[in-house]
Structures are given as C-alpha cells and as structure tokens.
Amino acid sequence: MAFSREEQLICVIARMLEGQRNISVGTNSPIPAAAALLMERLTDGWARPLLLGSSRHYPANDGGVEFHDRAAQGRVDVFFLGGGQIDGEGNINLVGIGAYPKMKVRLPGSFGSAFLYLTVPRVILFREEHSARVLVPKVDFISAAGWSPPGVFRRGGPYALITSMAVFFYDKDRHRFRLDYVHAGNSVDDVRANTGFDFDLASPVRETPPPEPDRLALIRGEIAAELAHLYPKFAAEKLGYTAAAANV
C-alpha cells in the first residue's frame, strides 16, 4: 500500500510509544500528536495523550503549570522536542543561529525544553529536515542539554532522533547517536552526507519498516478526524481529511 512520508513518520513514532502511558506533545507537532492519538486508539484509552494547545486532548485543568508540575514529579512518560539545531551529543537549540542575543536568525525560544529534557524519562527528538544545517557538530545555543554530569538530577533525556531520512537511537553512556534505520529510498551514505555530526552505526543498519496497513487505515480515518480539531491544515493537506476544513 502506498504511503506518504508523514504517514511513515507517524508509524515510526508510534512504535516508540508501545507500553508508554502518559504521552505528552508540545505545540506545533502534528506528526507526534497523530502518533499519540493512534496509541490511545490502539490501547483503548490506556495510553493518555496530552496535546499542549488543545482543549479537547488536554486531561488537566489546573492551569498551565499543572503539566510542568506533573513532569517534575515524573508523571509524564514521554515528550517530544525538536530543534533549529541538534548536535551529536543530543544538545538542542530552539533559540537561534549565531551569537546570542542579537542572533543572525532568531527562533521562537526554548519553551519548556530546558526543564522537560531532564525531568521526562523518554524524550523523542523529532525534526523532519535532515540536513547538515540542522544536525550540527555543536549547537550555537544550548536550549536543553543532551546529557548531564554525575550528581545532577536527571530522570531522562534523549531516547531517539527521528528525521525524514532516518532513525537514530541515543547512547546515554557515550552521549552519541547510533544510526539504526534509514527510510526507504535513502542510504547510509545519504545520511552521512546530510549529517553534520559524527555518529555510530548499528550492525546492521536496517531499512525502516513500512506503516502497518491497519494503522495506516486508522491514521487516514479516525485519527485524521481527531487531529483536525487542533491541526486542521495538516489533517487536510497531509492526511486527506476534508471535512471541517473551513477554519484552516
């Protein structure tokens, strides 16, 4: 069955959410949000997505602080972060390119990353653009650190890095990424040519499995309809969901 890049990425993320219960997703993240909603559906509601910015998928009512307080206690199992830059040690930069503060390119800001990267056990890095511009040897500004020295309270950190080309897993002891999967149509050499940092290779590096047909059907149906409440444009343009497309 033919599938799009977005559908592939939703399924890649969903496989990393098996057995995870409190799955939280930040703003501007339609693909991770779709994966979280898919897992809720597949587990009959055992998995609990919390989508920041949604009023429909937000099981919290004690103000914006409640989500962060949950994370501080260890009640958030999974979170997603991206980055204008991500480096080989798992540091992420959401603030800008160039010298701080008058940066050449100013990005929105660090949001909750500096806190959530240390308090959430499993953080999945997701950035569609796979280029040497994004995946750099060293970030210009550390919004959130990929690892911490001994003695620093840290519950979690980077688990994996998913891009439009590949899937890396993070080695917490060596502070390095390991290439495990390349998506169909890409080679290890392609990944190397588009990655600015050095990384390890799994043996063997495999091709990313295609979406499971039953999950693909759900994504195009129920999940797209649910996602459209928060991401109408994405649901319409990427998942072909056309109902209720008035306010995109």
């Binding site: 501080a72 990353s113 806190f115 919004s143 911490s148 309270f153």
Partner: peptide
C-alpha cells in the same frame, strides 16, 4: 526548580 542545569538559558 528542577531541570535547566546545562542550558544556556
């Protein structure tokens, strides 16, 4: 507050 250590923030 927890976290934040290691961040340039």
């Amino acid at each position: 507050i927890r976290g934040i250590l290691g961040s340039d923030v």
